[in-house]
């Protein structure tokens, strides 16, 4: 299961906090989200260190950009925590 097929199957979606969220819990979806979020966190931490920002600031910024960039028809979480299709 890779990210694109997981998103197209509506299993995972982008969240404002910059991390991948599980929309429909399946073992593969949870494992994929866990793996991707760990790698995203490391990347955010590196950017934060390089730019004197904090991890959360970078993550939130990445969250906005990821929501803008993700394919239409996939799930995104609204600020008040609802999953909607973009």
């Amino acid at each position: 299961l890779d990210l694109d097929s997981a998103k197209s199957q509506g299993l995972v979606g982008e969240q404002p906090n910059g991390y991948l969220g599980v929309v429909k819990a399946t073992p593969d979806a949870v494992a994929l989200a866990a793996d991707i979020n760990a790698k995203r966190r490391a990347a955010y931490e590196a950017i934060a260190r390089k730019n004197g920002a904090t991890l959360d600031q970078v993550a939130i910024l990445a969250g906005q950009k990821a929501i803008e960039k993700t394919a239409p028809g996939t799930y995104v979480k609204t600020p008040d925590g609802q999953w909607i299709k973009k």
Partner: peptide, 22 residues
């Protein structure tokens, strides 16, 4: 900006690559 300056000096001291991944 001070943290960036500080970060670069810290990294030089600790010999870690700039974008070391966690």
């Amino acid at each position: 900006s001070l943290r960036i300056g500080d970060e670069i000096s810290r990294r030089i001291m600790e010999r870690k690559p700039v974008d070391g991944s966690r």
